[in-house]
Design a protein around this nucleic acid. Structure first.
Lengths: 201, 201
DNA sequence: AAACGATTTAACCAAACGGTTAAACTGTAT
DNA sequence: ATACAGTTTAACCGTTTGGTTAAATCGTTT
C-alpha cells in the first residue's frame, strides 16, 4: 500500500523549499530533512528533482488560478467584482506572499519544465465573458471607454506587485514590516476605490 | 597595467548570465565562456562568484534607481511627472525587461549578499519632496485626497508588473509576443491617463 | 509464522561545481 | 637583452550535488 502520509509530507516540504529558494536554489537534502525522511524517498515517490518541482508548481498554480477565475466569473456587477477581487485576492496573496514571485520567476527561468502544466489551467470563456461585461458598461455609458485587457492588467498589477516586491519596496519606502503591512491592509479597499474612480463616468 | 577590457568583458558577460539565470542558476564556466576568457580570470578580477554577483547587482541598481529618482525629483507639475514617469520609465524597462524581476528576486532570495549595496542607493529627500507636492495639490483641491505612498505604489505597480510578469501574463491573456508588446506600448500613455483620471477632481 | 510486496534506510557514485595553483605569456622600463 | 610586474592559461582539487543501489524493515495475507 502506498504511504500517502509520506507522499504528502514530501510535497509539503518541497513546496516550502521550492517557493522560498526556487528550483535552482533548492537542495534535495534540505527537502528531505524538512520532511524528516531519507533523501532516497524523494526519488522513490517523485522520480527526481524536476518531477518533484513540477508537482509543486502544478499544485501552486491550482491554488492561485481557480481563486482568480472564481471571482472574475461570478455574475456580480463589475464594480462589485473589482471590490471583491482586490479585497479577496489581496487577502489571499497576503497569506501566501511567496507564491506570485515563485510562479513568475520559475515560469521565466524554466518555461520548458513548466510548459506542460500551464496550458491545462487556462480558461478561455472567463476572459471573454469579462470583456463582454466591460464593453456593455461602456456602451451604456456607465464607465469611460477602456481596453478591458488594460484594465485587467491594472487590477492585477496593483493587487500583486506591492506584495511580491515587498522586500524591495520596503527598502525604497524605508518602512519596517509592520508599517508596510499596514499599507498593504489599506490597499484591500484602496485599490478598488482608485480603479472605480478612474473608470466611472 | 590592469586590463580594463577584460574586466569589463567579464562584467558584461556576468550581467547577462546573472540577470537571465539568477545567482543560483548562473555558472562561472558559462560566464567565462560568454566573455571568451579562462574561468580563472573571474577569480583574478572579482575574487569569486559572490563578489562578481555583487558587482553586477550594484551596477544594475545604479541603472534603474537614478533613472527613477531623476524623473520624480524634477520641478514639473505632478501630472507632468506622472506622464513622464509612465512614458520614460516603461520605455526604459522595455529595453531592459530582465532587470525588475532580477532585482526583486535576488533581493528576496539573497538579502544578506545584497544588503551592503542597497542602502547606499536610497535617497530620502526625494520621497519627502514628492509627498509634499502631492499633499499641496490635495489642499488646493486639485486632486482627491490620497495617501502619496499608495499612489506611488500604484504608479510603480502598473508600470513594472506587466513587463516583469510578461511570460505569465502572456499565457493568461493568450497573446503572442507581438500582440503583448503592442499592449505594453499602449501602456506608455494609458497608465498616466488612468491615474490622472482616478485622482483628478 | 512464513512469505511477500511495499516502504525505508545507509552507503555509495559519477558528474558538476566553485575555486586554486604553478607555470607560461605579454608588454614595458632599464 | 634582461628583468620584472601584470596577465592569462591549463591542469588540478575538494566539496556538493542529484541520483542509485542493495539490504533492512514494515505490514498484510495466507
Amino acid at each position: 500500500m502506498k504511504n500517502y502520509e509520506t507522499e504528502d509530507k514530501i510535497l509539503d516540504a518541497a513546496t516550502e523549499i521550492f517557493q522560498a529558494k526556487g528550483l535552482d536554489g533548492a537542495r534535495m537534502q534540505e527537502i528531505a530533512q524538512k520532511a524528516s525522511i531519507n533523501k532516497a524517498m524523494l526519488h522513490y515517490y517523485y522520480r527526481g528533482k524536476e518531477k518533484l518541482f513540477q508537482a509543486v508548481f502544478k499544485r501552486t498554480i491550482q491554488m492561485i488560478i481557480p481563486k482568480m477565475v472564481q471571482i472574475i466569473s461570478s455574475d456580480k456587477p463589475l464594480f462589485d467584482k473589482i471590490r471583491q477581487f482586490t479585497d479577496q485576492y489581496v487577502s489571499f496573496i497576503l497569506e501566501h506572499p511567496y507564491i506570485p514571485l515563485f510562479v513568475i520567476n520559475e515560469l521565466e527561468k524554466h518555461p520548458d519544465i513548466i510548459h506542460s502544466i500551464i496550458q491545462t489551467n487556462i480558461n478561455n470563456g472567463v476572459r471573454e465573458k469579462l470583456n463582454k461585461q466591460i464593453n456593455e458598461m461602456i456602451q451604456k455609458g456607465e464607465i469611460k471607454p477602456i481596453n478591458p485587457e488594460q484594465l485587467f492588467l491594472n487590477v492585477l498589477s496593483m493587487s500583486i506587485f506591492p506584495i511580491m516586491a515587498q522586500t524591495s519596496l520596503r527598502t525604497i519606502l524605508q518602512k519596517d514590516k509592520n508599517e508596510y503591512r499596514q499599507l498593504l491592509e489599506e490597499r484591500k479597499t484602496f485599490i478598488a476605490d482608485f480603479i472605480i474612480s478612474a473608470i466611472k463616468k
